[in-house]
Amino acid sequence: MLVAGIKSRPVYGGLSVDPNARRHLFALEGEGALALTEEAARSGADFLKNADILYVASGSRAADHDKALTALGADTFWLSPTVPVLLNRLNVMLGQAKMGTRLYVAVTEGFIGQAMQVALNHGIDHASIRCEHRGSAARRVQCVHCKGVTDNVTTSPYVCTHCGLSLLVRDHYSRRIGAFQGVNIDAEEPGTAPQPEELFP
């Protein structure tokens, strides 16, 4: 079974602003704030008057990135308490979005995957979404056996939080599910699972 180097593994092109977009919608998590503040410093802040920012601090609350984002003076800025609440708002906003709106997403792979799922359900072409991945390499993984999804997986193997099988994390990635694939590592000789290795710190 091929584990690494699988072509479905996403590549993220970075958060560069599209000068032709009429509206810019940013869904940002944690250090994803820096992706935007750095881009604003690089490309000029003009686009911000047509920008909506949704932000959730997640693990980097202490860094006060929300203050820096507020200071950008975008048309709207909204601070969400949690990821699900942000995704819910993103869903509503995409439902109301006009032609010419460009979606940008950062920063963990799990968050990007989930925001992308919301966008795909609105018929948005995945290739049109600009994404940036930084910081933790933690993965969102779906157990291929019970279909349970586990967030923030940093090791391979890991124990499925739903069915308890020990899962090898492959590079195989499904955009529809927004997750990598986890496959039982000791299926052929139950009880021989190796110790988890910190592969996605």
Partner: peptide
Amino acid sequence: SLDFDVGMNFFEWHGPVP
């Protein structure tokens, strides 16, 4: 897995082939 591969393109679903 069909459930995992639904929605993928030709190169993506063939991703695991060496």
